[in-house]
Amino acid sequence: MAIVKDSNLLLQNVQGTLGKQFTIYKRNGQIIIAVKRGKSKKKPTQKQLDVRWKMKVASAYAVAIIKDPEVKAYYQSLAGPGQNAYNMAVKDAFHSPVIQDIKVEATDTVVVTAKNEFRLATVRVRVQDESGKVIEEGKAVPEKNGVDWSYKVAQMPKKGRIRVFVEDLPGNVSERGLLLG
């Protein structure tokens, strides 16, 4: 790949493929010349097919979501040089949030530490007894540090399980549990 530095009169208005050897295109006002890539003759692996599907879904999300001016402005504010709101929305949709830690404080408060490169939409906490019956469920509240979310449990069982569901803007959900007792 080569980036044309000077305003080249010959390449200024050229885009496309030349002689099945080079592709010339513009990105962010720069002219780029690259070797033309051909289609692979290998059969894609299952992992490649999964990634292609995930990318297709992420791209569809980005196309739809940037029609909302507020969300587009949010993603654009996170874009770096050579990036745009669409790129950031695809990146957000492609990666799921990560639940780093679940703690139960002495005050019967569940504290969830979760992160995502972009903002999280919701954190839900489900409290179950030993048999798996749901005792209560609700949304956690974000703490001021921007990483922790807390949920006050009305009646914490001695034994049981806490399930945490973290969702980001595109709808990717990560789930993690904590055994009690």
Rank of each mutant, 00 (worst) to 15 (best):
G138H: 12
I135P: 03
I33G: 05
P81Q: 08
E70Y: 08
Y61W: 04
V134E: 03
L10T: 10
N145V: 07
I99G: 02
K20Q: 05
E130M: 09
M88S: 10
A114C: 05
A140T: 09
V173Q: 06
K103L: 15
K26R: 14
R124Y: 07
E175I: 13
K20G: 11
R27C: 10
R124S: 06
E70S: 05
G19P: 01
K20D: 15
V104N: 02
E70N: 12
P81D: 12
F22L: 12
T122R: 03
S96Y: 11
Q83R: 11
K43R: 08
A60F: 03
K36F: 01
L18F: 05
V90P: 05
Q21G: 15
P69K: 09
V104I: 14
K144W: 09
L180P: 03
L120Y: 04
M156S: 02
R161G: 08
D92S: 06
R161A: 04
K144G: 06
R163A: 11
D6A: 12
K42T: 15
F22D: 15
V98G: 10
L120V: 10
A114F: 11
I33Y: 02
N13C: 05
S150V: 07
E136H: 08
S7I: 15
A2V: 15
D68S: 05
T23H: 00
P142R: 14
D50K: 11
P69F: 09
D108L: 05
A34F: 04
P81F: 02
Y25V: 14
A89Q: 04
N172E: 11
P44A: 13
G177D: 14
K20S: 12
F165K: 02
P81L: 11
S40H: 01
S77D: 14
K139V: 06
G16H: 14
Q21M: 07
V51C: 11
Y25N: 08
D92L: 02
P69H: 11
S59M: 06
A140I: 02
I31C: 10
F94H: 04
E137Q: 10
A114Y: 07
V90E: 00
L178W: 01
V35Q: 12
G132K: 09
F94Q: 13
K139S: 11
G177A: 11
K103D: 07
G160Q: 03
K26Q: 09
A89E: 03
V35F: 06
F118L: 10
V166I: 09
E167C: 06
K139M: 12
H95M: 15
V4M: 03
W53N: 09
K133V: 13
K133Q: 12
A73S: 09
A73Q: 04
E136L: 01
Q83L: 09
V112I: 00
I24E: 14
G82M: 13
E167P: 00
V14F: 12
Y86I: 15
L49V: 14
S96W: 10
K41S: 13
R37A: 00
D92T: 03
K133C: 03
G132C: 02
K158Q: 14
V4R: 04
Q48A: 15
R161W: 12
R52S: 12
K54M: 06
G177Q: 15
P44H: 12
N28E: 14
Q46W: 02
D92M: 01
E175P: 00
E70G: 08
S59A: 13
V112T: 07
